[in-house]
């Protein structure tokens, strides 16, 4: 379980990115975090694994308080949280396998990692994951040779090989086409279900959020303005999060998007 307790972040420039965010995410829950650009979505998930240091407040991963950990304990805690990025953030000049194995860095010493002498069990797991996302034949390709969707799958493998309890997912589909976006979102959600992971997914595509998440939190100017089920997204709520706009169409389209359609995309993908 992840618990945020009145988390705030003020940047040096004086911008208040987050104000008193309190949230609780039970184990196994996939939560979508929506909101306009600049609402503080990225800051929120970076404050959890402290890629951005929160100004005040506390973050609890199960019973461990994260915001006061020293460097070595922080690394230990980061190991338990897999992160997936908008621009994939793969190390471009390393191979797919090296990128996946870099998720094991906390577990192995420096020299073993430097000479790429990972334990066989890690390599087995890497192959299992790559096979699961359909990329096992690509393991020797360099990351910059892959397409966007393939890169994001490698990113997912890197996060999962950490054996995390929680996934922090920052705009996973923002650089992908609509079909690949759906495939990636489905993959993330399936893997969360298989491994009973909870996840926070930043996403600015409301439709995708409604399709895949069990819970939606709307952020506006660093404050939570909506917290509820996907079907509670009424035009009024969307107006509150994003501002005045004709939201009727957006909601309608989601209703049209029946389950059969999704199944079809999944089989095409395989």
């Amino acid at each position: 379980m992840l618990r945020l307790d009145s988390l705030s972040k003020q940047y040096k420039t004086g911008d208040l990115a987050l104000t008193n965010i309190s949230l609780e995410i039970p184990n196994g829950q996939v939560m979508a975090l929506i909101g306009p650009s600049g609402a503080g979505k990225s800051t929120l998930i970076r404050c959890i694994n402290r890629l951005v240091e929160p100004t005040s407040g506390a973050v609890y991963l199960n019973d461990l308080e994260l915001s006061s950990l020293n460097q070595s304990n922080l690394r230990k805690a980061r190991r338990r949280m897999g992160m997936i990025f908008q621009e994939y953030a793969l190390v471009e000049r390393l191979t797919v396998m090296e990128n996946v194995l870099s998720g094991r860095l906390w577990y192995v010493g420096f020299w073993r990692s430097y000479f790429r002498k990972f334990p066989q069990s890690d390599i087995d797991e890497a192959f299992r994951l790559l096979e699961r996302v359909g990329l096992d034949h690509m393991c020797d390709k360099r990351a910059d040779e892959l397409s966007g969707g393939q890169r994001q799958r490698v990113g997912i493998c890197r996060a999962l090989i950490q054996d995390p309890e929680l996934l922090l997912v920052d705009e996973p589909t923002a650089s992908l086409d609509p079909k690949t976006s759906r495939q990636i979102m489905r993959l993330i959600c399936e893997l969360c279900a298989e491994r009973k992971l909870s996840a926070i997914i930043n996403i600015h595509d409301v439709m995708l959020a409604q399709m895949f998440a069990q819970r939606i939190v709307g952020l506006q100017l660093g404050e939570i303005v909506y917290d509820g089920p996907p079907n509670g997204m009424t035009p009024a709520v969307l107006t509150q999060i994003y501002g005045e706009e004709d939201w009727e169409k957006t909601i309608e389209n989601v209703d049209d998007d029946d389950v059969l359609d999704d199944e079809e995309i999944l089989t095409n993908d395989a």
Partner: peptide, 19 residues
């Protein structure tokens, strides 16, 4: 971004440098 991603795995400073 690539450095951030390696850091986020729990890698140490010198591992982040190397990877």
């Amino acid at each position: 971004g690539q450095v951030e991603a390696v850091e986020a795995t729990g890698a140490s400073g010198i591992q982040t440098l190397a990877y």
